[in-house]
Amino acid sequence: MEDESTKWGSTAWTHLSSTRQQSPLIQCITNFVSMDLMANTLLSAGASPAMLHSLQEIPDFTPNIHALCINVGTLTSDWLPAMKMAADFAFKAGKPWVLDPVAAGASSFRLEACLELVKLKPCVIRGNGSEILALFMASVGSSKGVDSTHDSTDAIDAAKALAEANGCIVAVSGATDIVTDGKRVVGARNGVAMLQKITATGCSVTALIAAFVAVDPVHAFEATATALSVFGVAAEMAMDFAKGPASLRMHLIDSLHGLDQSTVLSRVNITSL
């Protein structure tokens, strides 16, 4: 019988190779800080990024995408209607969409916007521990901007409740990335600490989740876990060549582009919790 690590490695390779073969179109409505790295992450994984957020274009464009990624990092009142419209179009077209509730608890405006977006049925919500707790408790709290003041494991119960209440997958980034559908819980243990020193790595892994869910929408739980792990494996490979955050960023993109089957099968580290 296939053991758990072999099964997850095989699933991760299937998702990465399917992304390379199918080149799914991923619409990203995201913050100005993250656009470059998100687009390059998607390209290096084989997907096709579209950084399109104009309200006027969404009715024509969004029904034709394979998945949507919404990131509220540099949220303004001008962008929120486009986010909501795109989410609505994606859901009605049967296309999965992924929410990154950046700094959800930092302000009332931001929290309310994220809660409104959650009501529009994301397939996956990915945030850090503090963001997931803010969504679960629906309350503004002491915040350190986009940085988490909680470990991912602090938010497991909140993530499970949030997933069950909204019928979605919830992923919590941290030293161990947590993924749950409300019942099942797995931990992805790939990655390097220096990723925290590069802006938009969390945003970029959310985009990769969207790409993996696009090629396997029926198995969003597995696609989310494998995207987190594959991104982490690429970071581990990149760390062998990096001298600091800037070179890690460069080598991360190269490593993701060059990942082969044997590396994915041997290094993916996902286990049930």
Rank of each mutant, 00 (worst) to 15 (best):
V268W: 07
D100I: 03
F231R: 01
V33L: 13
E131F: 02
M51E: 14
E2H: 07
S18A: 15
E2W: 04
L25N: 05
W8L: 12
E4I: 11
P245S: 11
T180M: 14
V213C: 08
Q261I: 12
A90K: 05
G9V: 09
S54P: 02
A171T: 09
L42T: 01
A214K: 05
Q22R: 15
W97V: 07
A242M: 11
L120R: 04
I178E: 08
T226G: 08
S34N: 03
R110M: 08
T201W: 00
L111V: 12
A138G: 00
E4H: 13
D240W: 02
G46R: 03
R184V: 07
L120A: 06
L55V: 15
D78N: 15
L111P: 04
S18E: 15
S5W: 06
M239D: 12
F89A: 10
R189A: 13
M237P: 02
T6M: 12
G46Q: 08
A86E: 15
E112N: 14
V33H: 06
D240C: 12
A175M: 14
S17R: 15
V98Q: 06
F231A: 07
V186Q: 07
I253K: 01
S173F: 01
A227E: 08
I270N: 09
S266E: 14
G191R: 12
C114N: 15
S34F: 05
A211Q: 06
A12P: 01
G73I: 05
A159Y: 06
C203P: 01
M85S: 05
E2R: 07
A200T: 10
S108M: 09
V186D: 10
V264P: 01
G191P: 02
T201Y: 00
A220T: 10
W79L: 14
P122W: 06
E164S: 11
V72P: 02
I29Y: 10
F221L: 11
K119N: 10
G127V: 08
E164P: 00
D260Y: 08
L273Q: 11
L162F: 09
L228C: 14
T263E: 15
D254A: 13
L120W: 03
G73N: 04
L37N: 02
D147F: 07
V205D: 09
Q196W: 03
F109R: 10
G258V: 06
L80T: 06
R189M: 05
C69K: 01
T149R: 10
E112P: 00
V264D: 01
Q56L: 04
R189Q: 08
L252E: 08
G94V: 07
G105Q: 11
